[in-house]
Amino acid sequence: MSIISKLKKHRKGRLDMRSSTARQSSRSFLGNLLLGIVLFLLGFLFLFPVIYMINQALKPLNEMYMFPPKLFVQNPTVNNFRDLSRILANTLVPFSRYLFNSLFVVIIGSIGHILTASMCAYPLAKYKFPGSKFISALIVYSLMFNATVTMVPNFITISRLHLIDSYWAIIFPQFASTLGLYLMMNFMEQIPDSLIEAARIDGAGQFKIHIRIVLPLVKPAAITAFILVFQSLWINTGDRYIYTEKLKSVAYMLSQLAGASNVGVARAGVLAAASVIIFIIPVTVFLIMQTNVISTMATSGMKE
C-alpha cells in the first residue's frame, strides 16, 4: 500500500519538524515550573476523593469510626486487604470464576464496541448519503435521554430476546452506547478528505481504509472510548439480568460483601479494601492507554 508509506513519511517529517522548531511564544523554564506546581496543587485538590478512599482502606476499624474523623490514616494496616483475601478464598464459586466472567464481558464488550462503533462513525463523519444527517442527530440526542425511564423497556426487550442470565444481557446494551461513537465521529471529521481520496484512488476498499487509515488516525479518541466502555463494563454488577451465581462478575461479588444491610460495620474495612481493588484495575488500564495516546500524536500534521 503506497498510501500508507506516504502517510508514514509525512508523519515522520512532521515529527522531526516539531522537535526542531521552537514556538516563538514558548514559555521559560521557570514558567513551566510554576505551571507544573499550580497544576499539581489543583491535582491534589481533585484527587481528594481518591486519597480518602485509599486512606480509608488502610485504616483499622477503630480509626474508621473515629470521631472527629481524620482524613489520613494514623496506624496504617493491611488487615482489611487480608480479610478481603480470606473472604475471596472461601466464596461459593471460586474467585477465578468471577474474574473470568468479568474479563469475558469486559474484553468482548470493549473490543466489540470499539469495532462496531468506529465502523459506524467513519461513514457518518466523512460522507453524505441519504439518512446520514438523521442518524447523526439520533446518536447525539440519544445521549440526552434519562436512563431511568428506558430501564423497563430495555428489560422487556432483553427478556424477549432470551438473553436474561447470560453475558450478552450486559454486553449487547453496551454495544448500543453512543458516547464513544460520538467522540470518535468528532475526531474523524478532522481527517482531511484528500487522504481518504488518495487511498481510494490506490484501490483500497472502505473497510480497509477504515482499519488502516482512519482508525489509527483517531487513536486518541478510540483509546478514550475504550477506557469509557471498559470502565462502565467493569463496574457493571449486572444484578438486574444475571441470577446464576457462577455467571456473576467481580463487581457484583465485591458489592455483596457489605451483606444484606449495606451498612454493616463489621465489613466496613473489607468494603473499603474492595473499593480500592475495583478502582485500581481501570486506573491502571487508563494509565497504560494514556501513555499511548501521548506518544502517538495522531492527527498532527494531517490537516489540510
Partner: peptide, 27 residues
Amino acid sequence: RNRVLYLMMLPFLIFFFTFAVYPVLQA
C-alpha cells in the same frame, strides 16, 4: 452507490435501534 457504507454501519445500528432508540420511543 453508498451500500458499502450502510453495510459498515449496520452492526452498530442493529444494537442502537434495539437497545437505545426503541426504549426511548417506548418511554
